[in-house]
């Protein structure tokens, strides 16, 4: 089924074949109400993009639908011009922390080794080089001393870093993160942003659902504004404007605050 709707923005096919992630007309509904409606998005390669918008604007849903965790009603999702199934190992996902059973009997190193699932498959043995790679990823997020801790014994920020390490272990080209900075301490935020920026320097693409408007311009290159519909997309300097924010947040954000955020 395809929905014929008026485009909400420039809905051309430009860049779809090369974009790490491109959405066309993506619509997702929980029950009868669409939470994401006819959204187009073209993620720029080798850059860091923030998905911003008010609570309940469909930011996380957009990400989950892109990854097939929730099934969209309509729309086209491509990774480098192709389906997700053909690019699974190039796409790493860092979910929101809440989605996990914290009392599960699993240690930090085991969680990171899950990132190697595509290589280990069903039967291959975990070899020292796999462990070494997982440990290197833990070191990168500053969690190497916690490898044998049960996952529930860590603080929220430490858990978030472990999930980032799991994504790193996958050696992906595109990293999709759902609110990586939500409820974490300053040290973790620092550690995560350092890693994300180093990923960008390696030519990887980073897309993060983000809620803190005050850090958008220091952390990210591009923004994607959403409030059920696509309300803006582009480099921070062009798309992160008071007008666009007013459109996305409506009365929920005072003009003064917008001015402060965007300077």
């Amino acid at each position: 089924m395809s929905l014929q709707v008026a485009p909400t923005g420039p809905a051309d096919q430009d860049g779809v074949d090369t974009a790490p992630l491109a959405l066309r007309g993506l619509t997702v509904a929980y029950g009868a109400e669409p939470v994401v409606f006819s959204v187009d998005m073209t993620v720029a390669p080798g850059a860091m993009t923030a998905i911003i918008g008010p609570n309940g604007a469909g930011k996380s849903t957009l990400l989950k639908a892109s990854l097939g965790i929730v099934t969209p009603l309509a729309g086209q999702i491509t990774y480098w011009g192709d389906g997700l199934a053909r690019n699974r190992n190039r796409v790493a996902y860092v979910p929101q922390r809440a989605s996990v059973d914290w009392d599960f009997p699993t240690q930090v190193l085991d969680v990171v080794l899950m990132g190697l699932y595509a290589e280990l498959g069903l039967l291959r043995r975990v070899r020292p080089q796999h462990i070494a790679r997982a440990m290197a990823c833990l070191t990168r997020v500053g969690m190497q001393d916690f490898a044998d801790r049960q996952i529930g014994q860590l603080s929220g920020g430490q858990q978030q870093r472990v999930f980032l390490a799991r994504a790193l272990a996958q050696h992906a080209d595109l990293f999709l993160l759902d609110e990586p900075f939500a409820g974490v301490d300053a040290a973790t935020e620092e550690a995560i942003i350092t890693v994300l920026k180093s990923l960008k320097d390696e030519g990887k693409t980073v897309v993060a659902v983000h809620h803190d408007l005050s850090t958008v311009d220091t952390y990210f290159d591009n923004v994607f504004l959403i409030n059920r519909r696509r309300l803006g997309e582009g480099p921070v300097s062009e798309a992160f404007t008071p007008d666009a924010l007013q459109a996305a947040y409506g009365g929920r954000l005072s003009d003064g605050l917008i001015a402060a955020q965007t300077g």
Binding site: V91, Y93, P95, S99, V100
Partner: peptide
């Protein structure tokens, strides 16, 4: 452990 991640 994490059905959502497994699906991805």
């Amino acid at each position: 452990f994490d059905p959502g991640y497994a699906a991805v």
